[in-house]
Design a protein around this nucleic acid. Structure first.
Lengths: 203, 203
DNA sequence: CAATAATGTAACTAACTAGTTAAATTAACT
DNA sequence: AGTTAATTTAACTAGTTAGTTACATTATTG
């Protein structure tokens, strides 16, 4: 089943609109105009608003979870696995900022309305982290820690970083703090990775 | 000017509704019903939906920033200041989970539509952190680090933790991972504080 | 107590919004 | 070319939603 040009155009426009305004704030008439298609075309390609939202989330979450799992599985050392986990998640999130916005909104609702296929992708990432941490513990490299909190540290920090780009640029911080200048995602990921790994390593 | 019972009842109901459904998802008729007041009473006490939202955010953000600033200023040691910063923020957030939900939604939009008074409160918290970090560096206790990323680590992790209570309870994690059991806010705050302080301390 | 101010309410309105319909256009195939 | 299937469109509909109005009730005060 080849997806048409219009199908994808609507999906891309909807991704942006849902990220910017949330489910309730995204207006189907605006979407039609933004994509340059007639509103009825949206309903021709996507059953209804709820289904369109599911389609958006599925298309957004699966590649990110895939990338993280694939990259981590290439490594064998727990420290390297964890570093790769954090950096791959950061990189793929930054490549598509809509992911961070949509995930944050969903988590703000307690994740209750999140479509099952999207939730499954987040669980894949959490399970992968859990495996890595247990491997590290088994090899007496890592001390015991709550994987869910580590997961939240990674996801929470990166989401906030990625989605706050406009906010960051409006911050009236004086030149006295030059650390704030290099606010690119790679250095953020590096700092998060170092921080987490450092706290996990057995002394 | 003494705020009436009804004014506060509407404010409380609106806080919950905005936290659960976001600005666009919160329906004024639902709010009236939930509070047991007539819809026109809402508009008698609060100019319109946007003003009500501002009132909610102001009432929610100011006490949290106040609490963090007050607690941190009681300490003199940078390490103790940072630990208090993280634990006070965690405690006050957990006491009012609506704060986390609303802040996450606002950050998902890039913080662009956040009312000025609410944004100022987040800046107070960030500036306070910046001061603590600089004090620690001046005393040769902390190494240099990006305060914004530390801020995001604290806020992102705690927000996610607080607002994910329903999500956490739905996680089908097997008993093999008993770390997940003690998912209370105090132990989360403890782990975050240790992690961050540990990574900042000069070796 | 009477008058006035403050608060509460049912019913209404105008604009908006998700989704539909039936007809038109374009592409695919024989 | 001619027929059928896929796609697009303008116009429409029914339900929803923020905000209003004119009136009723309750406090307050001189």
């Amino acid at each position: 089943m080849v997806k048409t040009n219009t199908f994808q155009k609507i999906l891309d426009g909807a991704t942006l609109l849902f990220a910017q305004h949330g489910y309730d704030g995204a207006i189907m008439d605006d979407l039609a105009e933004q994509c340059g298609v007639n509103k009825a075309s949206i309903y021709y390609h996507h059953k209804d608003k709820a289904t369109l939202y599911e389609n958006v989330l599925t298309a957004l979450f699966i590649p990110i979870a895939d990338a993280v799992v694939a990259a981590v599985e290439l490594e064998t050392d727990p420290v390297k696995k964890l570093d790769t986990h954090i950096k791959t998640f950061s990189k793929t999130s930054a490549e598509n900022p809509c992911f961070a916005s949509i995930l944050m909104r969903e988590m703000a609702s307690g994740g209750v309305n999140m479509p099952a296929r999207a939730r499954e992708q987040m669980q894949r990432i959490l399970f992968l982290l859990n495996q890595t941490l247990q491997l590290g513990q088994a090899q007496h490299i890592f001390q015991s820690a709550n994987p869910l909190i580590i997961h939240f540290m990674i996801v929470g920090t990166i989401n906030l970083f990625v989605s706050s780009t406009p906010f960051r640029q409006s911050l009236p911080i004086t030149g006295q703090c030059d650390q704030l200048q290099n606010s690119n995602i790679e250095s953020a990921a590096e700092q998060i990775s170092k921080t987490i790994i450092n706290s996990l390593l057995l002394k």
